[in-house]
Design a protein around this nucleic acid. Structure first.
Lengths: 112, 112
DNA sequence: TCCTCGCATTCCTTGACCGGCATATAACCC
DNA sequence: GGGTTATATGCCGGTCAAGGAATGCGAGGA
């Protein structure tokens, strides 16, 4: 169960964009500012939210601060999804069974 | 890429609770009201948000309305997570490689 | 037909969040 | 030390969401 802060952090499109940027590689703030077309203070505040949610980590590198994605909370999201995967796996299984059935009786008229 | 509405819908803890309830089985509104300890109108409004995000579907059954989880948006969430899985899979792979290396040179002194 | 049950919608108030601006802070360079 | 670069924080106005109370509305039952 991901921390609620993770959900609220990812609820904002700008922050999801930032997370996507950091997926490619770690970046200093200035680069993020340029990429997400927001003011520097605004970007910094979003980074704060992501930081406090544990989604990103900062590393001070000379006068710049490099932000890096932390995999753990995203992994928790993945774990949260786990029980839901049954939903569409069951559907695929059922579809597979019906396809198998059709293959075995492939010269009978369709009954569906 | 899940619709933004899916993210905002799941950002609320009450709505996540409702989704978890509907994961077990479809339920009429009254049951959801009892379970999530919220007023009936409040619950109904949350259900509306979930409905408009496509996360749930309603089926009128006599005088009751039965809500049922729709797998598609959750599957989109799963797809969104896909590129991020590399993050912790890479870590596991690296760990695995190091374990293999240790196994192969298991009488040499550790160099890490 | 009237009444009741189950649910949705509306109005309202409060609180949270978003974005911009101005400003503080900290590290580096001269 | 003074100035510059890079980032964070505080304040403010606008917007939007959440929860409660009252109400609307359709389906069934007497």
């Amino acid at each position: 169960m991901p921390a609620p802060a993770v959900w609220t952090a990812l609820a904002d499109p700008h922050r999801r964009a930032i997370v996507a940027l950091l997926l490619e590689r770690p970046r200093p703030v200035g680069e993020i500012v340029d990429a997400c077309g927001l003011s520097q203070p605004g970007t910094s505040k979003h980074l704060r939210v992501l930081r406090e949610a544990g989604l990103v980590r900062v590393e001070q590198e000379a006068q710049r601060r490099v932000y890096r994605l932390d995999p753990a909370p995203v992994a928790e999201l993945d774990a949260w999804l786990e029980p839901y995967r049954r939903l569409w796996n069951d559907r695929l299984d059922a579809l597979g069974r019906r396809l198998d059935a059709h293959a075995r009786e492939d010269d009978e008229p369709a009954k569906d």
